[in-house]
Design a protein around this nucleic acid. Structure first.
Length: 1056
RNA sequence: GGCCCAGUAGCUCAGUUGGUUAGAGCGCAUGCCUGAUAAGCAUGAGGUCGAUAGUUCGAUUCUAUCCUGGGCCA
């Protein structure tokens, strides 16, 4: 028995059944065992952090990963799928800070780092249940039991080893870097965090004069009363000013204004000084201003390095300001770079808490922002302010405490990634990116502008940086294993020590150089280093795994994550493995774009437009959601998410597929069809040949697309096949073949073909939406469990059999469908429904496109037409008439014109046609022939009265609408059959049940028609007895109206 | 400000060497079909293929510039 899957069985419960089956029967693990002999296809799971709930974007990236892994497993690969969890980092710490009510680093220290980290560790898996639930629920096969977790000691040991490799290669150094910094929180912010906090704000906008101390270009005397005009919105940085920058190519002016001489870039002079307010004295190229000295605004600190002179910098613009940029290397990324390049000293007159340093005596101890007005006032008193005002601009604030961020130079540990930048670029070129512009564009750009990686964080919950420094001689050493740590430790290290802060900080080492005591540097490692190390650390490399074993699992053939990982995981993976192994750790990378709401806006909590995947799955199911994501647009395009679309996928695609199955099950059950998995090589039925050809073509296309990661195309291909070709054409056209009784040859073949088509669809679908096809497939293969195996996911997807592909037939079928469409249109226009048979259809088609008899029969049946004729001769359906062209003939015939008109209009269709062939339309005007040419006539073409004509794309179809009494009788008989079938359905009869039937009508024509087609009617409706008198006590009775005519239908069941 | 992606029907999206009349689904209206159908078919309304210029016999497609939206960076 094939099980029926009625509508009452919801997608939800159907899926649950399959998921339980997978669990119960251990299907995932068994699929791995089955494939274990195959070559490996390596997949790396990018570890999510489970301290937040998974969202729809996680569902799509997990779906993509699952699809590729399943597809590879079903095409001859062993695909290990080790899960992983990220566990360290600031997001976790922030969560815990909130939970504990702590608001800065000081309070964490007071609370105790040990306790704090314990909370962090516990909170990492706050939403583990949700993650595990959704992973399982969407059918993502991932080995969660053996998942790596970045806080595990073996994982940390691996990271230490990697850091030690960098260190021993001389690529780890301590240095300065300017980064966005929140003085209140005492921490630098990642770029991502900065982007969260931009707000429009009002800041001072001041123009300051800085006095020139060198002769102008081409002169020898130091000019009096001459100043550089400089613009800034952060007056507090002026305390730490060390230089000015100009652009070498710009034109600069020396102007006189208010009896003072100012230098300013030409393009900004009007805007800043006011048009006509100034007099130009001299002009210079920026290049000429290089090295000029000026007087410092403040002289709090003396330096032995040269400072306070003019530099060149390309980032100087003329968009705002004066074209002369003030440089404070401690407070700007670009300033810092310039400072380093030009060997400027370092001056940082704001401390880590954001207060002005004691050296800047008049302002000392003030919060940097509060110092602004006083600094401006001080400069004004000294006559150095040219103009002061305010401006509104977008400025970053700390997204947690809302303090304004500053650019702040901090010292920290760096990895010199720039040392192997070229190798990374080379390796990037070998990665296959989807879409390709990520690799060449965003990621390539990022690599070309590579700067050294700041790997240290002055935080608490992370992998501790494994560098120890000698308290006496300053020697640094990177520990490369727990064994080495024990070896070098002064005190014994317990077996189960916790390699986190603060425990690890208490471990002191003996200095190998001077024998002194070494103390660990207090920082932790950037958590991106954790995840970027996963190809190695997930196996504890090099400790827990042999080199040979490891190289089998490295590199990944495929990874996929959100596009936001470009500068995150995608980069850290590449950087670490390029250094360690000289190659990228992934060969193919699919970058997945954002999920937007249905209006194309980014989903965000504040807009309340975030789709909850749990709810969507509960309403529609996981397969509809997966299928929807994939078919609605390419994964690497931003996708608009609309629940209605998920619903549509369910109704249109998955329900249709289920109905196809139900149709098959209904009849295959009746006939006891048992599949043997073979389709005859020679198929007599043209529809069978066509369907087999189509699904073999589909298999070929599907494999080609999937191999190229064109999953959207593959899914759309399947969908079109199922809905349009299998359901709406093949099955609709072939229904009758399954109706008769007994399992005769043609029917058996029909079952085999349909079964094979369904099996194929299930197999092709299985990687994309794995749940529903599993259920259908298992039902279809129920009779041969041993032979077919337990799960569709154990199967290898079939290869196309090109011998069964008949391209010509596929093209001809498209033609058939076109003809049918045109025929239906003609029927519509003529208001003749399909139940009314018609005598003739004439197709005017291009030469060489005639169809085989079998296909002609398809058209005949579909359109209910007795005969079909193909021809190139339009005269068969059109009649032609001519009218005079008064323009050419009027002048010629003048008063005879009326007569000529009559003669022309009386030409028969044949005469007009003959003229069209030989170009001569002679008329007899008063007994003498007059020769007319084409331009003398206007020829009209109209269908002959008995035809209704439609045409499209070079094909013309004409149906003969003349209905003979015989045709009418047949039509009435078919109407009658239709009403009987509806009656049967209403009466709740099974399709196989036989009946006794009575058809009662007062209308003579209808009665005659019934008499005439009694046999056919009885046959179609499984009536063993047919009366035209009423039954005595019918089981069911119903009166119908055929047009104006009443028909009474009565029926009884007959027990067999 | 720079780079990337997108812009095609009311909505979601197809549309590959440049070539008759630019397609599908959803939604709306009308008719048809239904012994698998929460289905299907047909018709109608709905398109300056973001704009302009160029290349070409011919551009939704190629080139340039611009506009709008999104993303990344500064």
């Amino acid at each position: 028995m094939y099980r029926k899957l009625p509508k009452e069985l919801t997608q939800m419960s159907l899926e649950q059944e399959v998921l339980d089956f997978w669990d119960r029967e251990n299907i995932f693990i068994r699929s791995l065992e089955i494939n274990s002999k195959f070559p490996r296809f390596n997949f790396f799971e990018g570890p999510p952090t489970a301290n937040g709930k998974p969202g729809v974007h996680h569902v799509i990236s997990r779906t993509i990963k699952d699809i590729v892994c399943r597809y590879k497993a079903m095409t001859g690969y062993y695909v290990e799928r080790k899960g992983g969890w990220d566990s360290h980092g600031l997001p976790v710490e922030i969560g815990v800070e909130k939970q504990l009510g702590l608001s800065n680093k000081r309070e964490i220290l007071d609370y105790g780092v040990g306790n704090f980290n314990k909370h962090c560790k516990d909170s990492v898996f706050t939403y583990l249940k949700e993650w595990e639930f959704i992973t399982r629920r969407i059918g993502f096969w991932l080995d969660l039991e053996n998942a790596y977790i970045t806080y595990q000691p073996y994982y940390i040991q691996s990271i230490w080893w990697i850091i030690a490799q960098f260190f021993n290669a001389g690529l780890v150094y301590k240095g300065h870097k300017v980064l966005p910094y929140c003085a209140r929180c005492g921490t630098g912010l990642s770029d991502h965090a900065v982007a969260l906090g931009y707000q429009d704000t009002e800041d001072p906008s001041i123009y300051v004069s800085m006095k020139l101390k060198s002769p102008l270009p081409g002169e020898t005397e130091i000019p009096e009363n001459t100043y550089f005009l400089v613009w800034t919105t952060t007056p507090w940085t002026l305390l730490s000013n060390l230089a000015l920058a100009v652009h070498k190519d710009y034109e600069y002016l020396l102007v006189e204004i208010n009896s003072r001489n100012l230098l300013i870039v030409k393009e900004r002079a009007d805007a800043v000084l006011g048009e006509g307010n100034y007099r130009i004295l001299m002009e210079f190229k920026g290049l000429e201003l290089k090295d000029l000295d000026y007087e410092p605004l403040f002289d709090f600190v003396e330096s032995d390095k040269r400072s306070h002179y003019v530099l060149l910098a390309d980032y100087v613009t003329t968009d705002d300001g004066t074209g002369i940029v003030h440089i404070a290397p401690a407070f700007g990324k670009e300033d810092y770079e310039v400072g380093k390049r030009c060997d400027l000293p370092m001056l940082q007159l704001v401390d880590e808490q954001g207060n002005i340093s004691p050296e800047a005596t008049p302002f000392a101890g003030k919060w940097f922002k509060d110092a602004d007005p006083e600094i401006v006032k001080d400069l004004e008193n000294r006559g150095l302010v040219f103009k002061v005002g305010t401006m509104v601009h977008s400025y970053p604030f700390c997204w947690r405490c809302e303090s304004p961020l500053i650019q702040y130079a901090r010292s920290g540990w760096y990895i010199r990634t720039t040392a192997f930048k070229d190798e990374m670029i080379r390796e990037n070129d070998r990665i296959k990116w989807y879409p390709p512009q990520i690799g060449s564009g965003r990621f390539g750009e990022w690599l070309r502008n590579n700067v050294d990686w700041a790997i240290s964080r002055e935080r608490f919950w992370g992998t501790p940086l494994n560098i120890w420094i000698c308290d006496d001689c300053g020697k640094t050493h990177a520990i490369e294993s727990f064994a080495q740590l024990r070896e070098m430790s002064i005190e014994p290290v317990p077996e189960d020590f916790n390699p986190h802060k603060p425990d690890v900080d208490y471990i002191k080492l003996k200095c190998p150089k001077c024998g002194g005591q070494m103390t660990r540097t207090p920082e932790v490692i950037d958590c991106w280093f954790d995840s970027g190390s996963m190809p190695f650390a997930q196996y504890g490399y090099p400790f827990g795994i042999s080199e040979e074993e490891f190289m089998k699992k490295f590199p990944a053939d495929f990874i996929a994550e959100g596009v936001d990982q470009t500068r995150g995981w995608f980069y850290t993976l590449l950087a670490i493995s390029t250094f360690l192994k000289g190659v990228s750790s992934y060969k193919t990378c699919v970058s997945i774009e954002l999920i937007l709401d249905k209006n194309g806006r980014k989903m965000s909590k504040s807009k309340d437009n975030v789709a909850d995947p749990f709810k969507v799955i509960e309403r529609f199911g996981a397969d509809p959601l997966r299928w929807y994501f994939l078919t609605t647009s390419q994964p690497w395009l931003p996708t608009r998410f609309d629940e209605d679309g998920v619903n549509e996928t369910l109704r249109k695609f998955l329900d249709t597929l289920r109905n196809i199955y139900n149709f098959f099950a209904l009849y295959a059950d009746i006939d006891g069809f048992i599949p043997d998995g073979k389709v005859p090589n020679k198929l007599d039925n043209v529809m069978d040949r066509w369907l087999v050809s189509r699904f073999n073509t589909l298999i070929a296309q599907y494999r080609e697309w999937m191999d190229d990661y064109q999953m959207t195309r593959a899914a759309r291909g399947i969908q079109n096949f199922v809905i349009d070709e299998l359901s709406n054409w093949y099955i609709r056209r072939n229904r009758r073949r399954y109706w008769g009784s007994g399992l005769y040859e043609d029917k058996l073949v029909a079952y085999k073909v349909l079964w094979q088509a369904l099996i194929t669809v299930c197999e092709l679908m299985a990687p994309i939406a794995p749940i529903t096809p599993e259920l259908l497939w298992r039902e279809l293969t129920k009779s041969g469990r041993e032979k077919w195996g337990d799960s569709v996911h154990f199967r290898q997807i079939v290869k196309p059999n090109y011998n069964l592909v008949d391209e010509q037939l596929e093209m001809q079928m498209e033609y058939v469908i076109k003809l049918v469409e045109l025929g239906r249109l003609a029927r519509n226009i003529a208001k003749l429904n399909v139940r009314q048979p018609l005598s003739q259809l004439i197709g005017i088609v291009p030469e060489g496109t005639e169809l085989s008899q079998a296909l002609v029969d398809v058209v005949k049946e579909e359109l209910n037409i007795k005969s079909i004729l193909f021809s190139q001769n339009e005269k068969l359906i059109y009649k032609y008439s001519a009218q005079p062209n008064f323009k050419t003939l009027g002048n010629r015939y003048k008063s005879e014109m009326n007569h000529v008109k009559e003669l022309i209009e009386s030409m028969t269709s044949d005469e007009v046609c003959r003229g069209m062939e030989n170009g001569d339309w002679s008329i007899m005007l008063d007994d003498h022939p007059e020769s007319l040419a084409e331009e003398d006539l206007v020829i009209k073409v109209t269908p002959k009265t008995e035809f209704t004509v439609t045409s499209d794309k070079g094909i013309t179809v004409a149906i003969n609408t003349k209905i003979t009494p015989e045709l009418r009788a047949e039509g009435l008989a078919r109407e009658t059959v239709n009403r009987i079938q509806n009656t049967r359905k209403e009466a709740g009869l099974e399709v196989t049940e036989r009946i006794e039937l009575a058809l009662v009508t007062m209308d003579e024509e209808l009665r005659n028609s019934i008499e005439m087609h009694k046999k056919e009617i009885a046959n179609e409706t499984l009536a063993t007895k047919l009366h035209i008198e009423p039954l005595e006590n019918p089981l069911y009775m119903r009166e119908w109206l055929l047009g104006q005519v009443k028909l009474q239908i009565m029926l009884n069941k007959i027990d067999s």
